[in-house]
Write a protein that binds this DNA or RNA. Structure first.
Lengths: 162, 162
DNA sequence: CCTATATATCTTGACGTCGAAGTAATGCGA
DNA sequence: TCGCATTACTTCGACGTCAAGATATATAGG
């Protein structure tokens, strides 16, 4: 019995009038998400990064050459507030991992690009990251992984269309 | 195609040498967890609470009468750092929702209990919370919910035993 | 009994995040 | 063309969280 089941049992005992089915899903998603964070943060730390920095570098890298996006595009892609993105870019700029230049097409906008150092680093980090993630799902069969992915995708789609 | 699939496709294009299967699961868990947070926070806010406060009140309530646990037990049950728990208790004490008394069995320890006001409030909040969670999984059939719960539980158990 | 180690919880400084506000530039409609 | 609304990003204050450190108490072993 996992800990979430223990919690659900407590609620069933204390408030038998409540249907805690959804709490099982929501609780386990939250708990699993939390459980995944620590090992990933540990991997980032090996390269002098954290999740916040990795998020930006990875977004630029997967965007493909010239690995360059506006601050606003980065903010939307990573789903954080604008102040958060400014903070992230500031720190990566100080680290020499990204450059910030004015956008010739819009004077309000900045273009954020990977520096050669940033590019080299993220290419290393993402390999370690992917290996860490593979470890995290090791206890599931390939079929279970596919099922879980599909169900999670369905849950996400249902949320995003409501 | 959900956004995570878009990200996976980007990585497949940019780094075809990497197996991004796990990233699908981990990415969707994270994203779903994030997507669940906002609606729940909104519900808590209707009662003047946030997730941090709700967490403590709910833990005390589901523990059953006398709705009383040590700070350390609360910290372990909610998986936060000790400073975090102190901060949460401080604020709830100010709000008059919990009381803090010394533990007669151990002078280092404090007992945190729901006040009558806290008890009344959490009983209301948990009803709204459960309803909000039900809304969040509405796009899934009962069978899908059961499957998802089982797979998430398996993923959690695998992590916790490694 | 005494001493060393472990434990309970608070304090503290640092950090990342949020939403609101501010400033400058762009887009749209009259 | 001009004025207003919208947009892009930075700044700022508040907040919750973390890990490390501090202090007092409990436990274990000699």
């Amino acid at each position: 019995m996992d800990h979430v089941e223990f919690i659900l049992d407590q609620w069933r005992r204390e408030r038998p009038d409540l249907d805690v089915t959804a709490m099982g899903v929501v609780g386990r998603v939250g708990r699993l998400s939390l459980a995944y964070l620590k090992p990933m943060e540990k991997t980032f730390a090996r390269f002098g990064l954290n999740a916040a920095k990795f998020d930006v570098l990875a977004t630029l890298r997967r965007a493909g050459a010239p690995h360059c996006l506006s601050a606003g595009a980065l903010m939307k892609a990573t789903m954080v507030a604008s102040g958060t993105m400014t903070n992230r870019i500031d720190r990566l700029e100080v680290d020499g991992l990204v450059s910030r230049t004015t956008n010739p097409e819009d004077s309000r906008s900045f273009l954020i690009a990977l520096t050669p150092e940033g590019r080299a680093l993220i290419d290393q980090v993402v390999e370690a990251h992917v290996a860490t993630q593979a470890d995290l799902i090791e206890g599931l069969s390939a079929e279970e992984v596919a099922q879980l992915s599909a169900l999670l995708a369905k849950a996400l789609n249902a949320l995003e269309s409501s």
